[in-house]
Design a protein around this nucleic acid. Structure first.
Lengths: 122, 122
DNA sequence: TCGTTTATATTCATAGGGAGTATAGCAGGC
DNA sequence: GCCTGCTATACTCCCTATGAATATAAACGA
């Protein structure tokens, strides 16, 4: 019998590294190395995702069924057999959404306590 | 000669616990125990700040000059001599502001990747 | 007086991340 | 072919941060 799915809220709060990984996968399946590059580029160096942190975090996320590995391969001419592709599971999407809502609330508090100027308010 | 003040960005990303503490102090000075209560209430239990985490985080924040202890005491009839009051330093405000902007950008990404519904958008 | 809440602090165990290293496949230049 | 550098996954060592539990003691209310 499969383990009961824990409620998304029980994984919160996510560490900054883990949330960056989930954000990266929210755009579609990716392999590990490209997650690393995308996070580095997107956060403009604010969060540097090291190889060690990434692959251990991915192992944990697989274990928690937040992320799963794809069976299929891309078209042979685009493929690199060393790659392993990952995507968010349904649970993973819910966890990422719940964390996003938590951060939205936090930003609301930051705003009301004058930590953000008007032009910072996305 | 005092240590040169490090740039606010060098403290990023903050751990969820640390950002909650800074958010709490952004509203004004507080003593440790009341930070714990405020975080628990405000985040509706999503982030449970334990005594151990709180006081060790405060010690680190004092050491990094992100938080400082108040000399003065409140009026004697409101005081409890066991309490130690903390407030954000100028650096602390800048660090909290920088982290807030980082989260605003993350939320923008989460939104564009359909992790948030319209009514979640604060 | 006694139990509960407030308040700070410490210890122990574990999770998580940074830096560095290992291994190996791939791609381009020569 | 060979060398070099980049891509890709993975592991180790070390340190930091958090959770859980406990200690201590003052304040408070029945």
């Amino acid at each position: 019998m499969p383990r009961a799915t824990p409620p998304p809220g029980s994984f919160l709060p996510l560490t900054p590294v883990v949330f960056e990984i989930l954000l990266s996968l929210a755009a579609g399946p990716r392999h590990g190395y490209s997650i690393m590059q995308e996070v580095e580029t997107r956060s403009r160096g604010a969060v540097r995702l090291r190889a060690g942190s990434l692959y251990r975090a991915l192992a944990r996320l697989l274990d928690d069924a937040i992320v799963e590995e794809l069976d299929g391969r891309p078209a042979a001419d685009l493929d690199d057999e060393r790659r392993r592709y990952y995507r968010l599971t349904r649970l993973g999407q819910r966890v990422a959404a719940a964390e996003s809502r938590r951060l939205v609330r936090q930003i609301g508090v930051a705003r009301s306590r004058r930590l953000l100027r008007q032009e910072d308010e996305g």
